[in-house]
Design a protein around this nucleic acid. Structure first.
Length: 270
DNA sequence: AGTTTAACCTGGGTGC
DNA sequence: TGCACCCAGGTTAAAC
């Protein structure tokens, strides 16, 4: 699923519903996710109050006054807010029921997501080596240009690497490279500083616009209220292989880069 | 150290 | 209809 805009859309949607209410009950139906949900999670959460929900990369962190829950939505995960009486369906792996009857429900058909409990002030090794947030001021063309030095990997793979910058998945990597006019297969170390400025700007722009549209729904992703995101209508290359480029009408080329489907305009993107 | 590859899992679509 | 095969918003660990 879920790249940064979808995770941020989820965060904004659920936070007002889950903050301040004591957790009454936690039900883990399927602990076998990307990593097993630990036995202690339900007990640790019960009785606690969520203070706020923050996002780091594609992780959601539900902060209590003593510890926090860390959730990743993987490829097909979603979190919805429902009344507690709604019966679970297939792939509804985790329920958190609050004292006021609100239910936070985690669904993930492919089970590539994960849920951890981090006690006290503990962090997690998966958060340790993440790069900057793309929407922060600390992320810019200079950052990309510096880290790309002498790298031979394709620039698309480069910007999808979490140690370089977080939150850029396959859809938005394709889109940002189109917007910046850069070929996805160009070696990362062979791009000028000016063009990295344009790429950083394009990444910020496409992610920001996608958040405003509530993210992109291809199949599984839904917002906290079950509604899809609408950025799909704004995609200019992703999913459009063989169709005409919106800028120059040349048929868009579709190739594989780093095992991921990649669409670009060989005329507009160099 | 940088880069590539296989693996985790289910479901939907396609072609025979 | 059925079956085999390919594809999908991610990420890690292991192999080159």
């Amino acid at each position: 699923m879920p790249e940064l805009p979808e995770v941020e859309t989820t965060r904004r949607g659920i936070e007002p519903h889950v903050v301040g209410q004591p957790i009454q009950h936690v039900h883990v139906r399927q602990p076998m996710l990307r990593w097993p949900v630990t036995d202690g999670l339900a007990q640790a959460l019960t009785g606690k109050v969520i203070r706020r929900v923050i996002r780091r990369a594609k992780y959601l962190l539900f902060e209590t006054y003593d510890g926090r829950m860390m959730v990743h939505l993987g490829m097909s995960g979603s979190l919805r807010v429902l009344p507690r009486e709604v019966a679970p369906e297939a792939h509804d792996h985790l329920d958190i029921v609050f004292a006021n009857g609100t239910l936070l429900r985690y669904r993930d058909p492919r089970r590539f997501g994960s849920v951890f409990w981090l006690p006290g002030e503990e962090s997690h090794v998966l958060l340790a080596s993440l790069g900057p947030e793309p929407l922060d001021d600390g992320f810019d063309g200079e950052h990309l240009y510096r880290l790309a030095h002498r790298r031979k990997t394709a620039v698309k793979t480069f910007i999808m690497t979490n140690e370089i910058v977080v939150g850029v998945g396959n859809i938005y990597a394709n889109e940002a490279l189109f917007d910046a006019g850069i070929s996805p297969v160009r070696q990362a170390g062979r791009i000028s500083r000016d063009r990295y400025d344009a790429l950083a700007t394009a990444i910020k722009d496409v992610l920001s616009r996608a958040i405003l549209a509530g993210g992109t729904t291809l199949r599984d992703f839904v917002r906290e209220d079950g509604q899809p995101g609408y950025f799909r209508h704004d995609l200019r290359v992703y999913g459009r292989g063989g169709e005409d480029c919106v800028r120059c009408n040349t048929p868009l080329r579709e190739v594989r880069v780093g095992q991921r489907s990649t669409v670009y305009c060989a005329t507009c993107q160099r």
